[in-house]
Amino acid sequence: MSDKNCPTTSEITALINRETELLDDKKLAEWIALFSEKGTYWMPVAIDQADPLNHISIFYDDVLMMNVRKHNLKHARAPSKEVEIRSSRLTGNIRLLDFDAKTGNMTVKCNFQAVLYYNEQTLFAGQYIYKFIWTGEKYLIEQKKVNLINCDASHGTIITYI
């Protein structure tokens, strides 16, 4: 198998835009489909937290938990889900941290600001770090890590993925 060409900046941007757009549009089933079978969504609670297993996190969901949340979010009797969730995510400063031509896998980091309107408006900010794996046809997310600048603050309910 020949080496894979490094994706262009606009290809990487398109991957990120697609991911954040699906969250903005609350299309969770399609969003989950962006992840690999072993994909995870991780939001650490500490700055420079290295470990999702031996240290507590705000989120560390595998695809199974993503699917449970998907059902929960649209359940008619989930009291906290009666209020409509609206959100707008903005990403920038996209940079490629690592690209492996042999596998095509890459790690991408960008800054983000996400505004959630749920009862009241809340601003989240920080960095997204994506680990993408190349299947031979397309990129899937192996991990989306969300580093909040205020990860260790006292948070109210974080009602959905940021």
Partner: peptide, 10 residues
């Protein structure tokens, strides 16, 4: 071990 979660209840 493993840090603390802080959950603000209004």
């Amino acid at each position: 071990t493993g840090g603390v979660l802080r959950y603000r209840h209004n």
